[in-house]
């Protein structure tokens, strides 16, 4: 049963990652791309979780936590950058 679950979740995660990548490439603004990158990182973490659950090990748990840190730092940094850059023509 676990192998069936692995195949099903692999197909679903692949479709989801494809959708997120399409939004990254098409996204009209930088913030849409940041959001889609966050979703892609969440999909990656979910795939690591499924691997751990099916094969019954905990090797990737720190990697999942690190992925959430990377998504947090990345989106906060880019959001600050966008806010600063677009604010200047309004204030001047």
């Amino acid at each position: 049963m676990m192998q069936t679950v692995l195949v099903v979740t692999a197909v679903i995660f692949s479709l989801a990652a494809a959708g997120a990548i399409i939004r990254i490439s098409r996204g009209p603004s930088l913030l849409d791309r940041v959001l889609a990158t966050d979703v892609l990182l969440a999909i990656l973490g979910g795939a690591l979780c499924v691997d751990m659950a099916v094969n019954r090990h905990l090797n990737n748990l720190m990697l999942v936590v690190a992925i959430s840190i990377i998504g947090f730092i990345g989106s906060v940094t880019v959001a600050r950058f966008v806010a600063d850059r677009r604010e200047q023509p309004i204030e001047s």
């Binding site: 679950v5 979740t9 679903i12 479709l15 989801a16 959708g19 997120a20 969440a42 979910g46």
Partner: peptide, 13 residues
């Protein structure tokens, strides 16, 4: 696991 994966698919859609 399947429902958690479907959440990702829902986010992509």
């Amino acid at each position: 696991m399947v429902v958690g994966a479907v959440m990702s698919l829902g986010a992509a859609i």
